Amino acid sequence: RSSWGGDGLQGHVGKSSCFVATYPPNPIATRVVTALGGPTQYIFGNLTVCGTRWSAGDKQPSLRGLSKAQQDLLMDVHAVVCEETVGASPQG
């Protein structure tokens, strides 16, 4: 989450990702979001993460690409989550 006018991360899932029959459970995405301080809710299907930035006077953050530091953070968290999840391995 971005705050104080700084950078943050925002995750997006498809609107239909809450339908269990439509998409398979994604335990890796669920654990990555939790590890990054996001809401503790189970994610089905794919997760897209982008950067955010608050500007003065904005009511919502603007979306942007990930900085190098954000990319490194996501890769590190993803790798740890995969190591802790039985039978999973990190993939690009």
Rank of each mutant, 00 (worst) to 15 (best):
P27C: 06
D7K: 08
L36Y: 03
T30F: 01
A21Q: 12
R31F: 00
C18F: 12
L36T: 03
G51E: 07
G14W: 12
H78F: 01
P24A: 14
G87A: 09
M75N: 05
T52L: 06
Q60A: 14
A88V: 05
N46Q: 11
V81Q: 00
V33Q: 00
F44S: 10
C82D: 03
L9M: 02
S89C: 08
L74N: 01
Q71V: 10
T34W: 03
G6A: 10
G37F: 05
Q41V: 15
A69E: 15
V80P: 00
S67L: 10
Q41I: 11
S3V: 08
T48G: 08
I28C: 03
G6W: 04
S3C: 04
Q41A: 10
S62L: 04
Q41S: 12
Y23G: 02
N46D: 15
P27Q: 06
Y42P: 03
S17R: 12
S3G: 12
C50M: 13
I28V: 15
G6H: 07
T85V: 01
S3P: 00
Q91E: 14
T52I: 09
K15D: 11
L74M: 02
V49F: 06
S89N: 04
P25A: 14
K59I: 10
S17N: 12
V80L: 07
S62Y: 01
G37K: 08
A88Y: 11
A69T: 11
G51F: 04
A35P: 04
D58V: 04
C50T: 15
Q70C: 03
V77E: 03
T52Y: 07
S16F: 07
C82A: 05
L63D: 11
N26L: 09
S2Y: 01
Y42W: 06
V20C: 04
R64V: 02
C82K: 02
G38F: 04
V77D: 04
S17E: 12
K59G: 15
H12E: 15
L66P: 09
Q41C: 09
S55L: 11
F44M: 07
Y42R: 10
S62N: 08
P39A: 14
T85K: 01
V32G: 01
S17W: 10
G57Q: 05
G14K: 14
V13K: 12
G38M: 05
S62M: 06
L74T: 01
G11A: 14
T48P: 01
E83G: 10
P61I: 06
R1T: 13
V33S: 00
D76N: 05
R1W: 09
N26D: 14
C50H: 13
P25E: 13
N46V: 12
C18S: 13
G92P: 14
A79T: 11
S62K: 12
L66E: 07
G87C: 13
L66K: 08
S3E: 08
G45C: 14
A79Y: 00
R53Q: 13
H12P: 08
S17T: 14
Q41E: 15
G6E: 09
R64S: 03
Y23V: 04
R1A: 14
